[in-house]
Computed example of a mutant assay.
Amino acid sequence: MSRIHTTDIEVGYGDKTIVKQLSLTIPDRQITTIIGPNGCGKSTLLKAMTRILSPSNGSVHLDGADIAKCKTKEIAKKMAILPQTPEGASGLTVGELVAYGRFPYQSGFGRLTKRDHEVIDWALDVTGTLDYKDRSVDALSGGQRQRVWIAMALAQETDLIFLDEPTTYLDLAHQLEVLELLETLNREQGRTIVMVLHDLNQAARFADHIVAMKDGEVLATGSAEEVICPLVLRQVFHIDAIIGRDPRTEKPMCLTYHLIKEEAPVETAAPRPDLLHA
């Protein structure tokens, strides 16, 4: 079952095509992680699926409708996106930032209703940031700030949440904190989570479904067991990986790897002049 899928989309910047005739189905109520080398089109795909970028060809469908033909507020009630480097929070309190998530539901003068305030407090509470409500976003740590941005996405009350590298610039503890929060939102509230991750072991640990991309194309999709394997990692990242098992989760785990060196061409020895007339 899926609420969102792409059909033969091509997306790029100017004359350069990044995503090439890509068709992809996102499983509903699951955590999907997109992996791949830098520049392969992961973020571009995410932007196309959330209508930040418009495909030059193909289409993205949400609940059976082409998102290019849907009203912006209607899309915002169904999906939220947390970009790689969120901006625009300088000078705002945590509560003020999270309140922006209620924009799709506002009309008239845009005043917050009792319902809006209830949802904002709920989003802050579920992300563990309610105590920061009156604090400046600028004063928060990286992990705290990331949870506040997720709270803003939750305040949109969408079933679909897209995140572009949500663990970037965070230390190990805060990375785990954010990923466990997303896992809880999926398991307890049925949210469909789609995120780009660089860490293969985090992708294997938290994802139900993994999409492996290279050069604007999907090379493999499936469970962690199907994608985090030596053959796929060789094709996607050009590495020779040794895969084991996480002793706590039993999920595949990349233990070590090395780059695959290009095989040198076989050289043929030049004929020796003194033997030409032997």
Rank of each mutant, 00 (worst) to 15 (best):
D66Q: 03
L176N: 01
Y100V: 01
T167Q: 03
K69P: 05
R147F: 01
M152K: 05
S141Y: 05
D116I: 14
V148W: 01
L140T: 08
E74G: 03
L92C: 06
Q156D: 07
E74Q: 12
L163F: 07
K114G: 13
Y169A: 14
E157Y: 06
A139F: 01
E87D: 11
A80M: 10
A151V: 01
Q144S: 10
H117L: 15
S90E: 15
K73D: 12
K69H: 14
D171E: 10
A155G: 01
T129V: 09
V119K: 13
T85D: 12
M79P: 08
T72S: 13
I75P: 00
S141P: 02
R135G: 02
R145C: 01
H117E: 14
A153F: 00
W122Q: 11
V94D: 06
Y132Q: 08
A80F: 07
K73Y: 12
Q175R: 11
C70R: 15
Y100G: 04
A99C: 08
A123I: 12
T127D: 06
Q175E: 12
G95P: 03
D125M: 11
M79H: 03
P83Q: 01
A139N: 07
L172P: 06
I81C: 05
M79F: 05
D171T: 13
G110Y: 12
A173H: 14
L172D: 00
G101C: 08
T127M: 05
E87Q: 15
I120N: 01
L176F: 15
G108F: 11
D134Q: 13
A151F: 05
R147S: 02
E177C: 04
V119Q: 08
V126D: 06
R135D: 03
L179G: 03
W122V: 07
E165P: 11
P166G: 00
S141G: 02
F162L: 11
R115S: 13
L179V: 04
I120S: 09
L92F: 15
Y100I: 04
K77T: 09
S141V: 03
C70H: 01
T93V: 09
C70P: 07
M152L: 06
H117V: 09
D66G: 07
E96K: 12
V137E: 00
Q146V: 10
P104W: 14
E118P: 09
I67H: 05
V148S: 03
Q106G: 09
V148D: 05
L170A: 04
S136W: 04
T129Q: 10
A89W: 12
R111K: 14
E157T: 11
H174S: 13
R111Y: 12
M152H: 02
K71H: 14
L97G: 07
K114F: 07
M79Q: 14
Q84L: 10
D138N: 02
D116E: 13
